[in-house]
Structure formats: C-alpha cells, structure tokens
C-alpha cells in the first residue's frame, strides 16, 4: 500500500483551487493516491488569460529548463472527447528531503483560461505522480512545469488534437 499524500493548492505558486477547470479522476491508479479538494465551477472564469501570464503567476521570472525525459506527460494525441481529456503526469525524482518535486503546474495554452491545475508534493508523497481530466476547447498544447525543491523549474509540453472526426478507415 502506497503512502497516501494529501494534495493542497500551492500557496507559493499563487495558483488557488479556484483555477480548477477539471473533473476529478478518481479512477486512475495515480489519482487514487490523491485526496482532491472540491471544485468550484464558477472558478474557471478567473485567472490569467494567456499562457505567459499564467506561467509568470506560477513561477515568477524563473526560466524553465527543458524537462523532456524527466517529466513524462501522458495525454492522448487526439482527444476522444474534448470535454473530458485524461491527463497524467509523472516526474522522475528521488523524492528525498534534499531533492524532491515541490509542485507540478499544468496549463492548456488554447483554453480561455490556460491554468488547469497544480499538484503539490512533499518528500513523503513518495512519487511525483498525478492524474486528472481536463476540458480542452480546441486543438492545443498541454504544458507541464515541475518546480523542484532547489528552485529550478523544468518544462515539457504535448499537443492534443480536438478534431471533427469521421472518415477513418
């Protein structure tokens, strides 16, 4: 049995739970380790309107380094349903008191409000992994930022297509 950690919204990052535009994925193995806070549907109306503003609100003026190979961001290449797109993220980290992932921020650059969610971790989380579902308004990039305990920030992204469909095969 994996140790259960409690997710809280990041005070450091300035992202509040009011940014949630997601439904809770109670199902996935990773999310089962999380106790999520409830969602305020009105909250999706708030927050920065561009990716740059949202990133700045999350990490200030720090410049993210390339996180490919460290952050694994699992999203579908093409969404089956743009209203509920599964997303899981894992960051390769020893998760010790000296070296751990503090927060993973997720953004969708084509949504009216790019902020999606921020997951906070402590060394006692054991692993920096989380999963949820998000709504995507159209084809766009999903961006993940990992804030490490030494203050460094890593970034990676993946494109998710939201398509009209039909015609296959």
């Amino acid at each position: 049995m994996r140790e259960t950690s409690t997710m809280q919204q990041s005070a450091l990052s300035g992202i509040t739970r009011r940014r949630f535009v997601v439904t809770v994925a109670a199902g996935s193995a990773a999310a089962a380790a999380l106790a999520m806070l409830p969602i305020d549907p009105v909250a999706a109306q708030e927050g920065p309107k561009t990716l740059d503003e949202a990133i700045k609100a999350a990490i200030g003026d720090r410049q993210p380094a390339d996180g490919a190979g460290v952050i694994s961001l699992d999203v579908p290449q093409i969404a089956e349903n743009g209203n509920t797109v599964p997303l899981s993220v894992a960051v390769d980290s020893p998760m010790t008191a000296e070296d751990y992932v503090r927060t993973v921020h997720l953004f969708a650059d084509g949504n009216p409000r790019p902020g999606v969610i921020a997951f906070n971790f402590t060394p006692r989380s054991g692993r920096a992994e989380a999963a949820t579902r998000m709504r995507l308004a159209r084809t766009q990039n999903v961006v993940a930022l990992a804030e490490l305990s030494d203050g460094r920030v890593l970034m990676t992204q993946a494109e998710v297509k939201v398509t009209i469909g039909g015609c296959g095969g």
């Binding site: 290449q77 093409i78 296959g168």
Partner: peptide
C-alpha cells in the same frame, strides 16, 4: 471513437 461514432462505444476509451 473519433473516426467512427463515439455513441456506439460510449463506455470504452481507445488510444495508441
């Protein structure tokens, strides 16, 4: 569920 009707398989998700 994208190339063919999603409503035929509403409870199943695919992907690579």
């Amino acid at each position: 569920p994208i190339a063919n009707p999603r409503y035929k398989v509403p409870n199943w998700s695919f992907g690579i």
